[in-house]
Amino acid sequence: MASETEPQMSAELSRRAGHYAAAVAECLLAAGLPVTIQSCGPWHDGDGEDLDVEAGISFTQAFQDQHGGGDCGLHWTGTSGWCIYTAEGPDRHPSGSHWPGAGLLPQPELVAEFVDAFTLDPAGSGSGEQPSYRREGQDFTLLLDALAPYLPARPFLFEDPQTRFADLHRRAYDNRVRQALSSPASTPLTHLHLRQGELTA
């Protein structure tokens, strides 16, 4: 990240961006959207030098199939905020991006609403013009402060964003199973043959 930051700051920016992405992923999971992967890290130039920070959230193949079958996901950069991108072909070359225009760090609920709007009307959601809220490689201390509210309340449990996301993912699907098992008595009975190992699982 150029001369303004040391490797420790680069790592801390990546960690905080990851926790922000995990907070967004939590809202998406709560809305029933098929989030699969959350990643974060430094944003490199062609020579491998750290320039800024970015994070990403991917959707399942089923979600991608509904929107053309190519790669599709959410991407956040420390300069332009969130966008939904779509990519086609074997090289997954980006073919379109939709920017919500909601600022650099919109509330996670707003990001989930933007994804919901995209699922209903891909062509009409957001803008194709990439905004710029911050200069690349500048004001890292301010960005760290802005990301601080998204750090976990219990950092000793979820210091790593990936660990936090894995726990969110597990709890979301656990809740889905519990809701299905506690459905109204009027729900028709379904007979299903299971092996003992499958039942245990």
Rank of each mutant, 00 (worst) to 15 (best):
H19P: 04
L13C: 05
G137Y: 07
H19Y: 04
P7Q: 01
R16L: 11
S127T: 15
V24C: 07
V53G: 02
A87E: 05
R176N: 03
R178L: 15
Q38D: 00
L147T: 01
M9I: 00
P149N: 14
L142R: 13
S80K: 08
A185T: 15
F63N: 05
A117H: 13
T77H: 11
D145L: 14
W76A: 08
E49P: 00
R135I: 08
R176M: 03
R154L: 14
A201F: 15
T60F: 06
D121P: 09
A148C: 08
L120Y: 06
T77F: 06
G126P: 04
A180I: 13
I84N: 05
L28D: 02
A87P: 10
W82H: 03
P155C: 10
Y85K: 11
Q179N: 12
L29F: 01
P131I: 13
F156Y: 14
Q64K: 13
Y133M: 11
R164C: 07
L144E: 02
E4N: 06
L33C: 04
T190E: 15
Q64G: 08
G89E: 05
S80M: 06
H44C: 07
P108G: 10
L194F: 15
F59M: 06
S95E: 03
G101Q: 14
V115G: 13
R176Y: 02
S182V: 09
D50R: 00
D65C: 05
R154N: 15
T79C: 13
D174Q: 11
T5N: 00
H67K: 09
P155L: 10
A112W: 11
N175R: 12
R15N: 03
G128K: 14
W82R: 01
P42R: 01
F140H: 11
Q162S: 11
